[in-house]
Design a protein around this nucleic acid. Structure first.
Lengths: 174, 174
DNA sequence: CTTTTTAAGTCAGTGTTGTTGACTTTCCAA
DNA sequence: TTGGAAAGTCAACAACACTGACTTAAAAAG
C-alpha cells in the first residue's frame, strides 16, 4: 500500500489519526467502489446470456445459505419489495431451480429450498465469486483479512448487521 | 471479531490457512454485500426526491476528484456506455451542476468541471458517505483500516486497479 | 488538401431491477 | 367468527444499464 505507513510522528497527539484524513477516507471510498465492481463482475458474466441476473444470484445465494428460508425472511435480507422479489422467485420456481414447500408449523409460510439444479448453478456462481475473494485473501494475508472484516462489520447499518449475524448463526429457518 | 483468531494449532502446516476456508470466504462475501449496501444508502437517501440518482452521484464524485476530466476518461472510470453516461451528464449540465469546456490541446475534447452548485451537492453527498466510512474506520482502528485497503486493492481487476491508481495520482486531466 | 479516424453527442428501442398501489387467497389466532 | 398476517398477483412506472445507427466537429494521416 501507498499509505504513509501511520508514521508515529506528530509528537504530542494521544493517537495517530492519519488514517482518518479526508484524503484517506476518499481513497477508501474509491477502493470500495472499484473492488465491489470486480466482486460482482464474475458471477454477472456467467449469468449473462441466461435469463437471470444479479437479483437471481442473490436469491440463490441466501436460499443456499439457509435452506428452508421463509419468503418474508428473504424479503428482509434482500431489502426489496415483495413484488420485486416475486418476479425473480417465480422464474426460479418455474425453471425448477428453487422449490417452495408449505410450512409445517404455519401453513401460510412458504419455505424455500434449492433443487439440485438450483444448487448446481448456485455453486458455479458462488465459486466464481469465491475464487476472486480467496485470491485477494491469500495475497493480502490473514491479518489484513481480519482488518477487512472488522471494517466491513463496522460499516454496516443496524439492519444489515442484524441480518448478517442471523445469517452467520447456525440454525436453519425450520 | 468472531473469527477463531487464527489459532496456530494444526501442527505441521507451514502456515495457517484457516482464513481461507470456504466458510470464511462466504462470510466475507456476505459482509461485503451488507456493508456495501449501507455504504450506498446515505447518499441515495439524499438524492431521493431530487431528480438524480446513484449514477449522478458517481459522475459528480469523479469530476470533483479530477476537475477537467475528459468525457472519455469518465466513461472509462465508470465502465458504462456513452449513451448511458450522456443521459446523466446532460441533466447535470442542464441544471448547471457541471460545466463542460472545450479542450485547449484538442478542441474535440470536453473537459468537465463542477460549478459551485455542483460542488455543493457533491460535498453533501460525499460528506454523508464519508461520515459512515470515518465512523467505521475510527471504530476499527488503523491496523484494521490498513488491512481493509490491502484486501480491497487485491480484489480489484486489472482495469479497476489501473483506474484506481490513476485516480490517486496527483495531476489533473488538463 | 483530401480522406480517415477520433471524441462527443444523439435518437430509438430494449432489458433488468427496483418502486407504488390495489387486491386476492389462505390460514392462524384472538 | 372475525381480524390480521403471509404469500402471491396485476398494472403502471422509473432508474439505469444495454445495442445499433447516425451526426458533427476537429485532429491526424495520406
Amino acid at each position: 500500500m501507498r499509505e504513509p505507513a501511520i508514521k508515529s510522528g506528530s509528537g504530542q497527539g494521544p493517537e495517530n489519526l492519519l488514517f482518518l484524513t479526508d484524503e484517506q477516507i476518499r481513497g477508501g471510498i474509491e477502493a470500495f467502489f472499484f473492488a465491489y465492481r470486480a466482486f460482482t463482475a464474475d458471477p454477472d458474466e456467467i449469468l449473462e446470456g441466461m435469463d437471470y441476473g444479479r437479483a437471481h444470484h442473490r436469491a440463490l445465494h441466501f436460499i443456499a445459505r439457509k435452506p428452508g428460508l421463509k419468503v418474508s425472511a428473504l424479503l428482509d435480507i434482500l431489502g426489496v419489495t415483495k413484488q420485486s422479489l416475486n418476479r425473480v422467485l417465480r422464474a426460479l420456481l418455474k425453471d425448477g431451480l428453487v422449490e417452495s414447500r408449505v410450512g409445517k408449523r404455519d401453513r401460510r409460510e412458504r419455505l424455500l429450498y434449492l433443487t439440485s439444479a438450483g444448487a448446481e448453478l448456485e455453486r458455479r456462481l458462488s465459486e466464481a465469486q469465491r475464487a476472486r475473494v480467496r485470491a485477494a485473501y491469500r495475497a493480502a494475508g490473514p491479518q489484513a483479512v481480519a482488518g477487512f472484516r472488522t471494517v466491513l462489520e463496522a460499516m454496516m447499518d443496524e439492519a444489515g448487521a442484524r441480518q448478517f449475524r442471523e445469517m452467520r448463526s447456525a440454525e436453519a429457518a425450520e
